[in-house]
Simulated assay, not measured.
Amino acid sequence: MQVVHSYGLSAAQCLAVLRIGLGLWWLESWRHKDKRGWLQRGTGIAWAKGVAEKHRWTLVRGSFDRLVAPRPTSMAYVVVFAELALGLGLTVGLLSPIALVAGLLLNLLYFVLMIHDWAEQGQNLMMALISLVALLGMGWQTWSLDHLLHLFGA
């Protein structure tokens, strides 16, 4: 039985709206990035290095030094194209469960990195929460390519 709310959307459609909205949020994050700066001049990684150096947790500082600092160009591409892939995947609903888990992890990573900047925290926590709700509610079962292609039990 499909429950339809008084405003005309079923629970599955509400979850799809959340998934699509989250995808558009990731696309906006990708769109407003200075991609030339990130990919050619390393501005994003330089900014992250400054944040990591001042971070209160030694785990964050050490992890940045071990994982990101030795490969700044690769990591810049990972961040820029992860946001694009998440945005496209969630908006059209392709490989949604994978995108939701990846987005949740990326938002949690951003949350930990930006622990001192509460303006950024609201966005990261809200995006992580939407990812979790859409994942647990299987938000790919409506209005998605996953559903049309019968992927993930949709």
Rank of each mutant, 00 (worst) to 15 (best):
Q2Y: 11
S6V: 14
S6F: 11
Y7P: 09
A11F: 15
A12C: 12
L18Q: 12
G21Q: 08
S29W: 07
W30R: 09
D34L: 12
L39Y: 01
G42H: 13
W47I: 08
A48M: 15
K49Y: 11
A52W: 09
R56E: 13
V60R: 09
G62V: 10
S63T: 15
D65H: 14
R66P: 07
A69Y: 05
P70F: 09
T73K: 15
Y77G: 11
A85P: 12
A85N: 04
G87I: 08
G87D: 03
G89P: 05
L90F: 00
T91N: 00
V92G: 03
G93S: 04
L94T: 02
L94F: 12
S96H: 01
P97I: 00
I98M: 01
I98T: 00
A99W: 03
L100F: 03
L105D: 02
L108T: 04
Y110H: 11
V112Q: 03
I115K: 12
I115S: 12
D117P: 11
G122K: 05
N124P: 03
L125N: 06
L125R: 08
L125M: 09
S131C: 15
S131N: 13
V133A: 04
A134N: 02
M138I: 07
W140H: 09
W140R: 08
W140S: 04
D146V: 03
D146L: 02
H147P: 02
H150Y: 05
